[in-house]
């Protein structure tokens, strides 16, 4: 029996028939495997939830104890479990803290659901581990050859040079609360920036969670508690929705920055009113998508969401069969 016969795309999400569970289901289901904690993948009110310890903690924090699954079962990376007629394990996806690929085996065939992933180094989470398989399910957020993410440390250098050039202004960087925020801080530290990083209130709980899991983030301070003038020349992180809105009025002549893979396209950056776009993404870029799809050696590749036309066209050139699942509900996030 081929993997494409026992892993089934349904309206609720991908369904593993022999294990009787969904992976990242879009609606509440009795049994769910969750690849990572982003809101479009980790939804509330499932029955039994299986994920990494980190992802479960993120779900409890964001959804509340009572909505993060009736029962929660942690699974360590690489640890194997038999669920019904399928053997299941989780492997790192390199996307955010706790992010995992779901690896399923049945009768000598293997399917891997990668969730969201990236191949670029990230000091805040375990690196993506390619797993050879027969069926590989991939995202395609940045599946156009114009998306080639530069070295993130060069983008950080761009930010730090700008801070030097405008020492009286506050650099406010829009970033997603889970993953991007902590990665930015870690990159800043890696680049030798040891000053305080000021945080919008919405970003603080997850930074605390990362630190509890051993990711050191250095001197973090709430932006609302800064004394007058303290934010001049400082770096403030905030959710993208706050950077150009009323919250940002407290800042000194802010330089609006946004850290996202979309910032590679000028019009996208301009339409967001961004003054300093930082091309830092937690998703695989074009080269990483193609490399990964070829590395895992899968005969079939399913594309969950994104620019699937280009990816499927390119895969056909390598003799790989691609199929667009067009699962509705995974977000086209501006901050990816």
């Amino acid at each position: 029996m081929k993997a494409t016969e026992w892993l089934v795309p349904r309206a609720e999400g991908l369904y593993c028939a022999p294990g009787d569970f969904f992976i990242d289901p879009l609606v509440p289901v009795p049994r769910a495997v969750i690849t990572h904690g982003h809101a479009d993948h980790a939804r509330p009110d499932h029955g039994a939830v299986l994920a990494t310890e980190e992802t479960l903690a993120i779900m409890r924090l964001r959804l509340g104890e009572d909505r993060a699954g009736a029962t929660q079962q942690p699974l360590r990376y690489g640890e194997e479990l038999t669920v019904g007629g399928v053997r299941l394990r989780l492997e790192p996806a390199g996307h955010v803290l706790g992010s995992a690929q779901a690896v399923m085996e049945r009768a000598g065939t293997r399917a891997v659901v990668s969730g969201d992933y990236k191949r670029a180094p990230d000091p805040t989470c375990r690196a993506f581990a390619p797993v050879p398989c027969d069926l590989f399910v991939t995202e395609a957020t940045f599946a156009l050859p114009v998306f080639r993410h530069p070295d993130p440390l060069r983008e950080i250098d761009k930010l730090l040079r700008d801070v030097k050039l405008f020492p009286d202004r506050t650099h406010v960087v829009g970033c997603y609360a889970l993953g991007k925020c902590q990665r930015l801080i870690a990159l800043l530290r890696q680049a030798g920036y040891d000053g305080p990083v000021w945080l919008h209130g919405a970003l603080r709980p997850l930074c605390g969670l990362y630190e509890r899991f051993g990711v050191a983030l250095g001197d973090l301070r709430p932006a609302t508690e800064a004394a007058k003038g303290e934010l001049c020349g400082g770096i403030v992180l905030a959710p993208p929705g706050a950077i150009a809105d009323r919250w940002a009025r407290r800042l000194a002549d802010p330089v609006v920055c946004l850290a996202s893979g979309w910032m590679q396209v000028r019009q996208r950056a301009k339409s967001r009113g961004v003054e300093l776009p930082l091309i830092i993404s937690d998703h695989a870029d074009w080269d990483a998508l193609l490399t990964t799809c070829r590395e895992v050696g899968a005969e079939d590749i399913w594309v969950t969401h994104g620019r699937e036309d280009a990816l499927i066209h390119a895969l056909a050139g390598f003799g790989i069969r691609g199929r667009a699942l067009r699962l509705i509900g995974y977000e086209e996030d501006e901050t990816a």
Partner: peptide, 25 residues
Amino acid sequence: VDPVLFELSYDYVGDLAETVALIWP
């Protein structure tokens, strides 16, 4: 560049110089 991928990209980016600058292998 594969012409299909070029057209998809140009269509997405909307500016010839920018498309070529980004897509250049």
